[in-house]
Simulated assay, not measured.
Amino acid sequence: MARFGIVSGLLLCIDTAIALFGSLNKAPMLFIPMMLGIPILFFGVVALNPHRRRQALATAAILGAFGCLIGFGQLFHFFSVWRKQGVVNLHSTQIVSLMVAICIVFSLSYLWTVVQAGRQRGRRSAASP
């Protein structure tokens, strides 16, 4: 899971690079994936240490969930602008959608890992008398 955090952080940073190379106007919204990607990458590296794994991955998952909230808010804003004006920046919408997808996959994979670890703990405690 720590390596998946590192990969997710790098993907978010690449998402920002794509946003900056594909757009002439440099809006602050384009830097949000990198603002989330760098801490997720950092906590993924910290999670390589077995003594710090649980706290680092939990913090990275919280950042991923926060990224989902930010992204859904931005997508809602884009949708409302599109409904009122009929025109929205498609490139920015794609960048935010990619950020949301990466954050959702990372957060859900963390939850899946936690659930599987809980099931294994339950099986071990039931097996030992």
Results as ranks from 00 to 15, higher is better:
residue 100 V to N: 00
residue 11 L to V: 00
residue 36 L to W: 01
residue 96 V to M: 14
residue 21 F to L: 14
residue 87 V to Y: 15
residue 67 G to N: 01
residue 21 F to D: 07
residue 7 V to Y: 02
residue 107 S to M: 10
residue 22 G to Q: 04
residue 54 R to F: 08
residue 16 T to A: 04
residue 77 H to A: 03
residue 106 F to L: 08
residue 50 P to E: 14
residue 106 F to G: 06
residue 12 L to G: 01
residue 103 C to H: 03
residue 81 V to N: 02
residue 122 G to I: 06
residue 92 S to W: 08
residue 103 C to L: 01
residue 4 F to S: 07
residue 37 G to I: 07
residue 95 I to D: 03
residue 86 G to L: 09
residue 48 L to K: 13
residue 71 G to R: 03
residue 52 R to W: 10
residue 60 A to W: 08
residue 14 I to Q: 09
residue 109 S to D: 09
residue 86 G to A: 03
residue 116 Q to C: 14
residue 75 L to Q: 09
residue 94 Q to D: 11
residue 84 K to E: 15
residue 16 T to F: 01
residue 60 A to E: 05
residue 104 I to Y: 12
residue 2 A to C: 05
residue 40 I to H: 08
residue 75 L to G: 06
residue 90 L to A: 11
residue 109 S to E: 13
residue 83 R to Q: 10
residue 78 F to M: 10
residue 25 N to C: 03
residue 29 M to I: 10
residue 89 N to A: 09
residue 7 V to G: 02
residue 82 W to Y: 11
residue 127 A to C: 08
residue 125 S to K: 15
residue 5 G to C: 06
residue 53 R to D: 06
residue 41 L to V: 00
residue 103 C to P: 05
residue 124 R to F: 11
residue 82 W to C: 02
residue 97 S to Q: 07
residue 30 L to A: 09
residue 68 C to L: 07
residue 104 I to Q: 04
